[in-house]
Structure formats: C-alpha cells, structure tokens
C-alpha cells in the first residue's frame, strides 16, 4: 500500500513544504530577527514564505518569536487551535524553547512554549541569527518531506492539546474531569 501512494505522497509533501505561510506572531526581541529575515538581506520569500498572513485560519506555520507570559498563554492556545490542519510550530529563541533567561525565578513567564502547544522545531540562541531561522525552515521542510498520507491520523492526534481556557477567566486548566485550579503554569 505504501508503494502505491508514494508518488502522491511526494507531490503532496513537495507542495506543502515549498509554500509555508507564517503567521505574524512576534512578542519580543526575536521578532526583530524574524523581521530581518523577511527583509532584503536574507529573504525568506525565496523559499516560498513571501506572504505573512495575519489571520490564523490562512497560515500554516506558527513561529513563536519571543517570550510567552502567563497573560499571553491563553491567546497562544486559541491561535493554535484556530489554525487549519497541516500546521507546524517553530519555537524561536531561548525564551520559547525553555524559558530562557527568565528561568531563574520569574513569576510571570511560562517556562517553554511546549508546555502549551506541541512544537516541531526548537531553535536556541538569544536571539538566533536570521540565517539560523532560514536553516530551521529548511530542516522543517526536510521533516515534512518524510511524512506520509497513511500516518495522517496519528499526526492529527498528536496535535491535540491538553489544555483549555476556563470560561470568563484568562486561566488555562487541564482538559480532564478533575479541574486543577492553577494561576497559570
């Protein structure tokens, strides 16, 4: 069965990996490096990401460039769940990989964006050079080209998040029967 689908897989993966449209999500200093990667000196548009869509329903790559605070966490979760299905996440910079320089004892920072949403590629350094962001996108393209239409169920199941937003409050709770009340994470 895998042999029959291999050409369709190749075309499907080629098309998706060569036209990744990022969402404009820049919270902090890494956003400047992301903007610099879009400008004339290092051009992401050469790789297909020319249009940065502002609406999450039309984007398929979420580059988390910057620190995620407790106030921003429900918004990030909502944006991730609004994106349409073949979607990928790059955690750019030390702050979104694992809390970064705020990991000592900050009361307001989430220590790593992967506590909230599943992340595909981690990109350390504070901040990464724009060429490193282009290299991360190339590694993501390499990762996409190894997917297959057969494993699509498992892939979509791995995108389900464990958190939900409590109504009327900006608090994230676990999606289970026992409601654990935490002030952020």
């Amino acid at each position: 069965m895998h042999i029959i689908l291999s050409t369709i897989d190749n075309i499907y993966n080629w098309a998706r990996s060569n036209s990744l449209w990022p969402l404009t999500f820049a919270t902090s200093c890494c956003g400047i490096e992301m903007m610099s990667a879009t400008a004339s000196n290092f051009d992401i548009a050469r790789f297909g990401s020319e249009v940065f869509r502002a609406s999450p329903r039309q984007a398929d790559l979420l580059i988390i460039a910057g620190t995620i605070t407790h106030k921003m966490a429900p918004i990030l979760l909502r944006l991730y769940e609004q994106m349409a299905e073949p979607k990928y996440v790059i955690a750019m910079g030390a702050c979104s990989c694992s809390g970064g320089m705020f990991k000592n004892d900050s009361y307001s920072v989430v220590y790593g964006a992967d506590k909230i949403i599943p992340v595909d590629i981690y990109l350390p350094m504070c901040p990464p050079k724009p060429e490193a962001l282009i290299d991360a996108i190339k590694k993501l393209q390499h990762k996409i080209k190894q997917e297959s239409l057969i494993n699509r169920d498992a892939y979509i199941r791995s995108h389900k998040t464990n958190l939900q937003q409590k109504d009327d409050l900006d608090i994230l709770t676990l999606k289970e029967d026992i409601q654990i009340f935490k002030m952020g994470l």
């Binding site: 098309a15 004339s40 548009a45 050469r46």
Partner: peptide, 23 residues
Amino acid sequence: TRRKGPNRVGTYGCLQTIADAIK
C-alpha cells in the same frame, strides 16, 4: 525592493504558484 523573489522552487521560481495552489 532590491531582493530576489522565489527562486528555489523551480528554475527562477516558476513552480511556486502551483505549489501554493496544491497546498
């Protein structure tokens, strides 16, 4: 704007719209 447009997808980027449409 003194940069180059899409030039990785086909030669000189001619397959870029087809990739967008299939995606």
